[in-house]
Amino acid sequence: MQALRINVILFGIGNVGSALINQVIESQQFFLENRNIDLRFPIITNSTLAFFEKEGVKNSWEANFTQLAFPFTIADIIEFAKNNELENVIVVDATNSSELVKHYIPFIQSEFDIVAANQSANVLHIDFYKEIRRNLKKFDKTFLYETNIDAGIPVLQIIKDLYYSGEKITKIRGVFSDSLSYIFNTFSSKDLPFSSVLKDADKKGLLKADFKEELSGIGVAKKLLVLARELGKETEFLDVEITSLLSHRLEESNLKSGFLSNATVLDKDFEVGKIIQPEGEVLRYVGEISIPENRLEVKLVSEPISSAIGQLKDTETVYEIYTQSRGNNPIIVRGDNSEKKSETIARGILIDILKVSEKIKLKETIWL
Rank of each mutant, 00 (worst) to 15 (best):
R284H: 03
G12R: 02
F259C: 09
E99D: 13
L300A: 14
R133A: 09
S216L: 05
S177F: 02
N36R: 04
L250K: 10
I275V: 10
G217V: 06
S189L: 09
V301I: 15
Y182K: 07
S196D: 12
A221G: 14
V16S: 07
A3E: 12
Q324H: 07
F51A: 13
I153T: 15
K222D: 03
E131L: 13
L215W: 07
K203W: 00
K359F: 00
N122Q: 09
S189Y: 10
S177I: 03
V240G: 06
T323L: 06
S325G: 04
E271P: 02
E33R: 08
I105W: 01
E87Y: 01
E62M: 11
Y163F: 14
E252P: 00
R133H: 12
N96L: 07
I132V: 15
E343D: 12
S195P: 15
D161A: 14
A3Q: 11
D202Q: 11
K203P: 02
A116V: 08
I289G: 04
P304E: 06
L225G: 07
T66R: 14
F176H: 10
S342M: 11
D267R: 04
V101S: 14
S179H: 07
A94K: 09
S165V: 01
V91S: 02
A19T: 00
D161S: 15
G12S: 03
F52S: 10
V91R: 05
N59D: 08
E251F: 08
K223H: 03
V356L: 10
A94E: 10
E241M: 09
A201I: 06
K223S: 10
G14C: 11
E236Y: 00
K313F: 09
V226N: 13
F31R: 05
E55R: 13
S306K: 13
A63S: 11
S290D: 15
E279Y: 02
D150S: 15
D336K: 13
F51T: 07
P154R: 03
N83I: 07
I25P: 00
I172T: 06
A228R: 14
N135Y: 13
V115A: 14
E87H: 10
R326A: 11
T48E: 13
P193F: 12
E53Y: 13
E297W: 00
F270K: 05
E281Y: 14
G310W: 11
E316I: 07
S307T: 15
F11P: 14
E79D: 14
Y163R: 12
P154E: 04
A50G: 09
V57M: 15
E339A: 13
D352Y: 13
R133M: 00
V8M: 08
S307E: 06
E131W: 02
S188F: 11
D239P: 05
K208F: 03
D314F: 07
I149W: 07
S253P: 00
L86S: 04
I332T: 12
L368E: 08
P330C: 09
L39P: 03
G12Y: 02
T315R: 15
L144H: 06
G217N: 09
S257T: 15
I77P: 00
G348V: 01
K58E: 08
M1F: 09
L198Q: 08
Q119I: 08
A63P: 01
N148G: 01
P42A: 12
P71M: 08
A151N: 03
L206C: 07
D140S: 06
N148V: 00
I291G: 05
D127S: 15
V89G: 10
S18A: 08
